[in-house]
Write a protein that binds this DNA or RNA. Structure first.
Lengths: 130, 130
DNA sequence: TCTTGACCTTCCAGTCACTGGAAACATTAT
DNA sequence: ATAATGTTTCCAGTGACTGGAAGGTCAAGA
């Protein structure tokens, strides 16, 4: 398979696939003409990577997930540990965003949003009061 | 004031303050020795920026907020519009993270996390089923 | 056969908001 | 005089791509 077919079937842009090769996540063969030549296993890996990325795993976590996936002797505990760590990252981000949301939403509700210059949003940013 | 005092009082690292000058958010004066010389108004702006950034506004949004803040003839509607746009960004991010969390949390709960290799997390990544 | 167009390659630069570090000059303390 | 600290500029790196340029390859049609 050439790259565009793999892109189509994996749902990843060609650019991203080349990037994944660059960072060592995949290692497709090459045809005589220099084109990348993808096997089914490459496609499978790319689909795996696409799903892992869509769950927010970093490239480095994806690398480790892929290694675990290919290790027949893995312990599921190792996978779970990795996933739990990522879950904590997600929870931290959600908490941070939720706190931003809370503050900002309050300010927005306090703002008349009319033609006058008085604005509690700017006042809060200026004075530090929430 | 020299940069380290401003850093201390604004809570922003010196590096960040220099960066904010680079991108045109502030324009402190200079002493004869070439050191930046910050006035109270610079400090005030930096504190404003720090709070805006902590609410997740981008640098560009901060620039616009600062411009509105300094415009006596502003309409609070413009500030509110900006803040509401940002609130929508936040909501999108929260929704995305929450969906990740939902899926991943389910997988984690399905995984035994023991010494055996069978792992629903990897299986899901491999096969695409959630 | 030639040409057009689609495909592929590599390499470089840009994104965002910093952050780290090097080299050199200024100031302050001992 | 020396050492320690503070400041300057500039360059490079972060993560995970993304866009674009310059050029090689291939299949189809006139």
């Amino acid at each position: 398979m050439n790259i565009s077919e793999v892109a189509e079937r994996s749902g990843l842009p060609s650019k991203t696939i080349r990037y994944y090769e660059d960072v060592g996540l995949i290692a497709p063969g090459r045809s005589a003409n220099g084109y990348r030549s993808f096997a089914e296993t490459d496609l499978h890996k790319l689909a795996f990577l696409g799903r892992a990325r869509s769950l927010g795993f970093t490239i480095d976590e994806c690398r480790r997930l892929l290694a675990l996936y290919e290790d027949r002797g893995r312990a599921s505990a190792d996978v779970k540990k990795l996933a739990e760590g990522h879950l904590e990252d997600i929870d931290r981000k959600i908490a941070e965003l939720t706190e931003m949301r809370r503050t900002l939403s309050h300010l927005v509700h306090c703002c008349a949003g009319d033609g006058r210059p008085d604005c509690p949003i700017l006042e809060s940013l200026a004075k530090g009061a929430v």
